[in-house]
Each structure stands twice: as structure tokens, then as C-alpha cells.
Design a protein around this nucleic acid. Sequence first.
DNA 1: TGTCAATATGCAAATAGTTGCATAAAAAAA
DNA 2: TTTTTTTATGCAACTATTTGCATATTGACA
Lengths: 178, 178
Amino acid sequence: MALAHALLAALHQEPGTGYELTRRFELSMGNFWQASHQQIYRELGRMAQQGWLELQLQPQQGKPTRKVYSVTTEGLAALRDWLQQPQPPAVLRDDLLVKLYAGAENPAAVQAELLRHRALHADKLATYQALAAGCFACPQDLPRAEQFIYLTLRAGLSYERQWLAWCDETLSALQELG
Amino acid sequence: MALAHALLAALHQEPGTGYELTRRFELSMGNFWQASHQQIYRELGRMAQQGWLELQLQPQQGKPTRKVYSVTTEGLAALRDWLQQPQPPAVLRDDLLVKLYAGAENPAAVQAELLRHRALHADKLATYQALAAGCFACPQDLPRAEQFIYLTLRAGLSYERQWLAWCDETLSALQELG
DNA sequence: TGTCAATATGCAAATAGTTGCATAAAAAAA
DNA sequence: TTTTTTTATGCAACTATTTGCATATTGACA
């Protein structure tokens, strides 16, 4: 149940509503964990029932009541416990490589897809670089907890740079293959 | 339904049984797409029903009948069609980064996990390097279709090298953070 | 001779994730 | 002034993946 732990990590950094968490997952956390708002609301409900979260209701006129979740003592204990449990590394699982595997059936289509992906990776890399230059310009001066968050951004940078380089390498190889 | 297309790619390269495919997914294809035998048997059944695969029964005395699947004309058409459809790139989704995000709660546990993952990535890299030096020693001399497969192995190498380098970089950063 | 690993197949249940739909008001843009 | 976007929530259905169980033979090891 890694989504639950990702939500614990996010809410421990700062309490928030389902909506705010969805935003956060689109920005910094989405770098390494993705979740839709439907998934998040459902999981928050479960976690609150389990006692990992408590919620404070903030009624608003006209709009639905804001439900602000924060991590309970049990929730923090669960997060700490999970931090100590060994987990298998993320495995590569990529459609594009399945396509490349069968690439001899249509090299031109695979080349086009590689070019498209190359551009998407370049975009994402640029976004991360802008974030690193902006919010994290002086990582040493950040509060301790945010220095750890900065290290996750560096993973994103490394990941995107790697794919960009691999796309280039593979496009060259395809050219030579003809 | 990417598993179906991965199976089409594998069976188009060479027909086989569910069991053989499970082996293949553990070796070369498992590099970028993982599937359990349960998943594979079920999917093969669906695909055969759909007309993408045909099966040849090879009764064996004592053992269950071997079901050898091969790709039909419709199956190949489906594979070719899929090759042309744009797909989003693989996104990073990693427990370890969730842990690092919340790392201030227990830096020692995160450091231990990074060291463990570093070793696992080094192992996998060594396996890929051995495969590259063995089966793919002279990639230029391979049949055309296998040159594409070689390019997927190069992706695996690139991926593991990147994680190894990132683990080292992050371990250093953690040391400085104290 | 008994046990264990490998070969070879598959069902069922649980968990996780995606997609489609639905509501409803405020604020901003056309 | 009408439309679109943003804020804010959630259910239901579907697809995908994982985990646990189940069967049954061959060949190797102890």
C-alpha cells in the first residue's frame, strides 16, 4: 500500500484536503508517485477509518465542506515502521521498449515514437531544471526536511536525463540499421 | 492492454507455450515488462478467443497437454496497428523516493535502503553486461530483428547505470546532511 | 525410497489503478 | 452575458496486477 505511505509522507509535511493533495501529486510528488483525485479521496477515507489520519471539517457556504486531513500518532508510527521495511527497487516497465522489441515490423513508426518521447523527456527535464533553479537554488539553506525532498527532485533529473540520452543513442542506432 | 502486445511481440519472434513465455519474461523481456505465469495464461486464453493467436495442442503422456501458441494474421495486424499508436512514456513510480521524501523521519533507515538498492542495481547491471558480452558480442552480425532486441538490452543497461550513479550521489549527499 | 526442484497448467480472491460519470459554486475569460 | 476554468468532492464500473492455492509428472538428490 505505497499510496497510503506517500499520503502519510505528504500530510506529515503539511496537512491538507484531498484537493490540495491532488495538486501536490501533480507537482513535486508526481515526480515519483502518481495518483488521481478519485484514488486519493478513496485512500484518505480508508486511512481515516484505520486511524492513521484525523480530519477537521471546515464548512464553507455554497461549496462542499473542506475536509482537512492530518497524520495521527498511529499514522506517524505506521510511516516510521514502513521506512524501515525493505522494499524491492522500481522495475522498468515501458511500452516503448515492447515496441522497440518488435521494431523490425515497422522501424519508421518506432523512430517516430522515439522522437516524440525524446521531446516529452526534454520537456520534463526542463521543468525539473526550472524547479531546481527556482525553489531549490540554495539547497544547503533549506530546512532539513526539504533537503530530503530536494534529493527526490535530483532523482527526477537523473531519470529524465538518462532517457533523453538513451533516445538519442537509440535513434542513431536506428539510422545505422536503416 | 500492453501485456497482450508484449505477448504478440514475443510470440511473433517465436511461437511457444505459456510456460516458455513465462521463462522468456523472466529473461530478456522481463527487462522492460514483467508478468506472472497466472497473468500470462489468462491473457493467452483471451487473445486466442479474440482470434489473435492460434494454438496447436501437443499431448504428452503423463503431463498436461502442451499448448503452443502462434500469432495469427489478425494478431500481427493488431501488433502493427499498435506500433503506430502513440503511447505516453513510462513514468517513474518508486517506493524508495517516497521514503527519501519522508527521510528526515529516519535518515539511517533510508541510507540502509539506498545501500541495499545500490547492490541490487549493481547486480542487475552485471547480469545485463554479461548478456551483452555473451549473446550480443557482435551486434552487427545479428539478424535484423534481433538487433532491435539488442537495443532494448541497451535500455536496461542505461537504466541500471543511472540508478547506480544516483544511489552513489544520494548516499554522498546524505553523509553531508549528517 | 522419500523429498525436492523443475516442468506445465490453471482458478479464485484481493489489491491497485484507470475511466466515466455526477454535483455544485466561484471566478475568470470570451 | 454566456462559457470555461478552477475549486471541491465522490461513486461505480472496469482493467490490471499480485498473491495464494491447486494439480500432476519427471528427474535429480539424499
